[in-house]
Design a protein around this nucleic acid. Structure first.
Lengths: 219, 219
DNA sequence: ACCTGAACACCGTTCAAGT
DNA sequence: ACCTGAACACCGTTCAAGT
């Protein structure tokens, strides 16, 4: 089809192009099964065997874009919550980070699925079994920050709390997109129940009367 | 291959056999993508086109086994928690039901994935958008039972609480099998945090030690 | 009425060959 | 050194045909 490419010079550009095309297709199709090798290479303007010069198989390609997407997820939560050792309100920072996680999952459903719902065929996570744990480490440390500020249950282990909060966030992120027609409470309300009930954060604002809070200035 | 079947008389037996074979393969392979039409029909002893006499396509077949599996999940939680209007301790019943949900997910990973992680291509959930909501209705009603027994936050809507608890259960169920090497706290501890923190249940076995359970050395 | 053989358009992957 | 043409073994699905 498109024979326009096939440039000259040193390779490695193709590798980047393949990753970009895979990311773009994942965003468009929202389903890894439809992100097919033949669609990827066609978008780059190359034939299927060329892909195998850069990746041993499709799983390796997917793993490479997974690594990229993990980095952008961590960056999204980080930038929403601010630097870890900032001086501000640690509870507000934790809230903002969690909110950013849920927003990112909603806005990047294809990526979220491939990050957290696809069984890695080879259990080829990192040796320590914590692929993409940057976001989790952030969560645990922000919870610890709240504990130090006496805004969270001080008796519990921050990592244990983070595990339950992560599970709750993941459940909200996946189920709300899977069951769109289910009568979900507002996301903000569910997040608040998680953070007050599990972590022990003080309720947001003064009144938690179930009013759907739109977009609060979080800083 | 296996020509042994092809019996006589009225059909419809083949339909049941196909459903049984699909369920069995799903349990063995733990991954819907590997549950292939050709594997299903081979197990039954029939050729691929025969399947299309009973199901319009593969998605319809999967939907039919999904309906079956939803029923067995609801039966598992129901039988663990006891009848809804039983006289006993409603908090214990709620706990038992949640525990059964997590156990079932752990023991039936292939089924759980196909029930709760596969995007239904056609948004062909029930008209009310609540496919498989029997288990959810049960959960909400048991939480309401705890509220009436003054063992749960009486101010919140039982359905809202149930949504967050379900999200937490789903997150625990899926993430613990996806990230097997992650240093998870004991399932029992995470469930307890969910039920005490979100629903407002009294802590389990409150009297004796009062010490939060700490895990052993994580090697 | 119930089932099969043979084919179609796809998929991931491989290999010999082109420049 | 980098890429392609052609093929292989799979997949879901269809259709004419067998009994």
């Amino acid at each position: 089809m498109s024979r326009t490419r096939n440039p000259r010079g040193q390779g490695d550009q193709l590798r980047e192009d393949l990753l970009d095309a895979t990311e773009a297709l994942l965003a468009e199709l929202e389903d890894e099964r439809r992100v097919t090798i033949r669609a990827i290479v066609e978008r780059v303007g190359v034939t299927p065997p060329s892909l195998y010069l850069h990746f041993p198989d499709k799983a390796a390609l997917i793993r490479a874009v997974v690594a990229r997407r993990f980095a952008t997820l961590a960056a999204a939560t980080q930038s929403a919550a601010g630097p870890l050792e900032a001086a501000g309100d640690p509870a507000a920072a934790l809230r903002a980070g969690c909110r950013a996680y849920l927003d990112w999952a909603r806005d990047n459903p294809g990526s979220y699925r491939v990050l957290f719902e696809i069984q890695r065929d080879t259990e080829l996570e990192r040796p320590d079994g914590t692929t993409g744990s940057e976001a989790f480490d952030q969560l645990a440390r922000r919870i610890a920050g709240c504990q130090q500020a006496r805004m969270a249950d001080p008796a519990a282990d921050a990592g244990d709390l983070a595990a339950v909060v992560w599970a709750g966030l993941h459940g909200i992120a996946t189920l709300t997109v899977l069951r769109k027609r289910f009568p979900w409470p507002p996301i903000e309300q569910m997040l608040d129940r998680l953070l007050t009930g599990i972590v022990g954060l003080p309720p947001v604002g003064a009144a938690t009367t179930g009013e759907p809070i739109t977009e609060g200035p979080v800083s």
